[in-house]
Design a protein around this nucleic acid. Structure first.
Lengths: 203, 203, 203, 203
DNA sequence: GGGTAACCGAGACGGTACGTCTAGTCTTTAA
DNA sequence: TTAAAGACTAGACGTACCGTCTCGGTTACCC
């Protein structure tokens, strides 16, 4: 499993510090253990204690680097390649929005969808976790949609009177609502939804 | 606080049973205590133990009648008059959908919105709880919107090609997404969203 | 299983009262259920609730006639024929004491011994239960030994200076101590003990 | 209150282990709390929960180091100086046995006697607890009596044909029987009993 | 033969304690 | 200084029983 090596976001290790350095192997085994445990347990049933045990790591090591369970899980999940949001440059705004919706829905099919729903659920009880969710997951989709919609407004594909932020929520809303209300994101729905949402954006 | 008297949904008390009958006063004090505790605590921080203590009731009495915490909370919350969904008959389909969206958003403003978001969050880890949420809360909104949209399709206000179920999810999605992503349901958003969604339904 | 029909000791039904009379069948099924449950459970693990369920009887019916668990159990156990204390008339005091010790030890062998030990254990936390144990079980043995020892003192078999009550405790003590300290009442011990105790009584 | 510092018997802390070491202060406050609670409550009414609360300690800390309530209580009680069994060297076997009986009876007078009776009672429902009772309390008395009786057999004070183990049970039995049958260990009884038991041991 | 009184079963009630689990913190030794 | 190990306080979990109560019904006796 290839992994995007990246800085942990809760620690600024800008410069060389004295003392024993953070163990990269611990970090990896924590995230690996989390991913493996999540294939058999729900997010809410997963405990820091269980992660620490499975990873062969002290609980303190986890608490030192992540503020809470949600943060560990999100880092474990959203850094996986399956959750990237890289797309080819679209020919026009309509195609961009369509592609984004399609990619989002494909990512949410099956197990991953349930996982994201559980993460969202977990985040409802913690503003910090919600913030992390927004930053590490939603933000990319917001930015992408924002550029497409703004572009569409300029080219005349979309109504000039759209408020971009509101429009993004309208576009993303149905996908996540379908998810959290326990329904499948099947092809028929994707098609129906996309048709409606494109219409709602048009001039 | 006037309350919709209704049968508890987990018990079929069709006929006279032997034994001491269920205590109505305990039932009320459990629901009251739950409501009062929720004004100071989040759904997840609320414990059955705390409800029992506050209500002056044994824990077993709660476990006897509700399968889990979510069920108690939903019965406590959604039976309140503030969460009814009674609306005047609309002149046409557009007005119907607009009214439903407006009512929904008003109910979700402020504290109640956070509460519902937390309930949804809690329900992500338990299919049974999600089912109860659908049955006791979403269903009403589904039904109402369903009749408006079907009506609109017949009168020609809305596109004949709409799939009603998909359309309902598209209409409700943005509201709940806004909620669970931690943003306010302010008037500007309501206006923008309504404009877009009505357009998406039109022929 | 033949049973000594006897008055329950906690109720004085001296005279005919008005109202429905106590159900003899309930009484019997309670005692039967208790005996059956005790073959698989320890005295402490046995619950009034379990007895009531097994006997097909309301808990109140048990509480109406017995003050506590120990009382039910003792009535169930000690009224059984295996626990009677009828013995042939001895030729002399020594034989009497010997016979009593032997009978006592035989009754305590195996399962019954453990049962009595558990009853004694249960009675240590409740003076009332201890009283019932004394009245329904120990008293018979006390009386019997008392007559033998007094007889022996008169015939010169036993020392005139014996205090009868103390002597009884000395005679009974080793048996019950062996029981509650978890050791077997094997034949070798019975023989050794009897020899010693008879010597201790002699002039 | 001076206390025999000793290893807890359920843990083999042979060598230095990694991790935070067991808190000596928690251990002491648990035992102190137990002792204080026992002055007002019976053994059976005492709960682990109450001990934990009184000691300002998590329940898990108790469960980590003791297998059950009886074990905590016995460690709290029997390590007290009042329950030691140190005696001066006797001139002969008769004096030894007499002294041991006397010391035992003095220790059992008043509150402590009731306490020991309750502990014995509690132990009747649990072989493990009975074992602990034997190991931490009875064993000392067994050993002492054993050496006195064996000595007496060699010097001719006691009958050569005595089985030492049986004799010990005969000697200890009356004391504990008197205790568990709820009678006082008064001076008259001690005198009568001692006279009889010495006679039973003699050649 | 109707009244009344005590019984019966069933089972809900307010409680207490159980033994387990997890959270998040603290304290040790080793690297 | 960080890591691992694991003990610490705290408190909720869901279960089992306690002893009491409240129902609808059932016998007996007594007038």
């Amino acid at each position: 499993m290839q992994e995007n090596i990246q800085q942990n976001q809760y620690v600024d290790n800008e410069s060389k510090k004295s003392g024993r350095p953070r163990s990269e192997s611990s970090r990896r085994s924590i995230l690996d253990a989390t991913r493996r445990l999540l294939t058999h347990n729900s997010v809410q049933k997963l405990s820091i204690e269980a992660i620490a045990k499975k990873a062969g790591v002290g609980k303190t090591t986890i608490y030192r680097w992540w503020p809470n369970k949600s943060a560990v899980i999100m880092e474990a999940i959203f850094t996986q390649p399956a959750f990237n949001n890289v797309m080819p440059t679209p020919r026009n705004a309509v195609q961009g929005v369509t592609m984004q919706l399609d990619k989002l829905c494909r990512q949410m099919a099956g197990k991953n969808g349930r996982l994201v729903a559980e993460i969202i659920g977990e985040a409802q009880s913690s503003p910090e976790a919600l913030q992390v969710f927004t930053d590490t997951y939603l933000q990319d989709r917001y930015n992408t949609l924002s550029s497409y919609i703004d572009g569409g407004k300029q080219t005349g594909e979309f109504s000039e009177e759209l408020d971009t932020d509101s429009a993004i929520d309208v576009v993303l809303g149905p996908v996540f609502f379908r998810l959290i209300s326990g329904q499948e994101l099947d092809d028929a729905f994707i098609k129906d939804m996309t048709t409606m949402l494109i219409k709602s954006l048009k001039a």
